[in-house]
Design a protein around this nucleic acid. Structure first.
Length: 327
DNA sequence: AACCAAGGCAACCGCGATAGA
DNA sequence: TTCTATCGCGGTTGCCTTGGT
């Protein structure tokens, strides 16, 4: 497919090309030949100066297009394949702190691009908000992520880690998605050194950039690692939810979460713990309901919600509405 | 088998920031 | 200081795949 760009429109700030160049520019999917040309050129000359690079490499593409293709796809250290549990957890946490600062979030997920994380967020996370009929930026949804989704991810990571430790053959350990297409490195890594090290690895910032981050920005790899290992390393972490969940082990998630002092679906910080416990089963990982979170072949975020969660979520919403109305 | 809708993702677009002449 | 070229980010689009009917 040779989609010639006759209407190239990025003339915003100086990226002006003469008419002939515009006529010659290609857009749309990259061909193998174009990929090879770009790879070869960068291998020999390095990256940067993308417009001139595109010309010199003989590519009928804009510099922007070349840069994007290189950064998001051709770079040797870019990781393909599905987002792991650890990465999901990290994305949720970082997004709760920084919002849609995709490139900033991507800096903490080595090999992942901002585009990939953004797509993940839009397709997976926002889908849940849609299903819950609430805004992705609403407090309700953020709380649901914080108190349901993230603890559950942590538990799954822990469970996978335990499986890994109990099965040296690695037959059960599938923290990384079974459907990974070409993520051989991560699977091998996970199998060989174990999930916990994998987790540690996932939180290692690229090229030591964390050392230059400002204090307010630097949610360090060690912070996450400490959080994850809070049950072993019970110090220097103020994230009550994560810590309590990590400490919870095989106890009810909801129970653990609800006993945190944080506010939950209520302006006064009151939680209807009893109501919840009466109206829904607790999520002990030993029971059937919760095993679906841990033992399924699928490893997607979709599995982190089930019918009871939705019911519970809406109960909390109704409760919140009632409280707001003074009932 | 054919059609359609939804989801996923690569690529594009617009704009602000930055560098340097 | 101003202007231009380039970079990089976040939002959006559109194509391809997949699953359901």
């Amino acid at each position: 497919m040779d989609v010639t760009n006759s209407e190239f429109s990025d003339h915003s700030q100086g990226e002006l090309l003469d008419n002939q160049d515009q006529m010659d520019l290609r857009r749309g999917p990259w061909t193998v030949e174009e990929d090879l040309a770009l790879i070869n050129y960068i291998a020999n000359h390095g990256e940067g100066r993308w417009n001139s690079l595109a010309r010199c490499a003989g590519l009928r593409r804009t510099g922007k297009s070349c840069r994007l293709r290189w950064l998001n796809y051709l770079r040797p250290d870019v990781r393909r394949g599905n987002i792991t549990l650890e990465e999901q957890l990290l994305i949720l946490e970082l997004h709760s702190r920084w919002g849609n600062r995709w490139s900033k979030i991507a800096q903490h997920l080595p090999g992942r691009t901002d585009n990939e994380i953004k797509n993940y967020w839009r397709t997976r996370v926002q889908k849940h908000a849609k299903q819950l009929q609430c805004d992705v930026n609403s407090k309700q949804f953020k709380d649901a992520m914080k108190y349901l989704w993230m603890p559950r991810l942590l538990e799954r990571i822990r469970a996978s880690s335990m499986n890994q430790n109990n099965n040296d053959s690695g037959a059960i350990a599938h923290v990384n998605n079974n459907n990974n297409n070409n993520n051989h490195n991560m699977n091998n890594y996970s199998s060989s050194v174990g999930v916990q090290n994998n987790y540690r690895s996932a939180f290692t910032t690229p090229d030591n950039s964390s050392t230059t981050a400002t204090s307010s920005d630097s949610l360090s790899a060690q912070d996450y690692y400490n959080t994850f290992h809070a049950h072993d390393n019970n110090n220097n972490n103020n994230d009550v939810v994560l810590k309590s969940s990590a400490q919870a082990g095989h106890t009810s998630y909801h129970q653990e979460c609800l006993t945190t002092p944080s506010s939950y679906f209520s302006d006064q910080g009151l939680m209807e713990i009893d109501q919840h416990q009466n109206n829904s089963n607790s999520y002990n990982v030993n029971n059937t309901a919760s095993n679906m979170w841990l033992g399924g072949d699928e490893d997607t975020s979709e599995n982190l919600w089930n019918v009871e969660d939705y019911m519970w979520f809406h109960q909390q919403q109704q409760q919140h509405i009632s409280n707001s109305n003074g009932f």
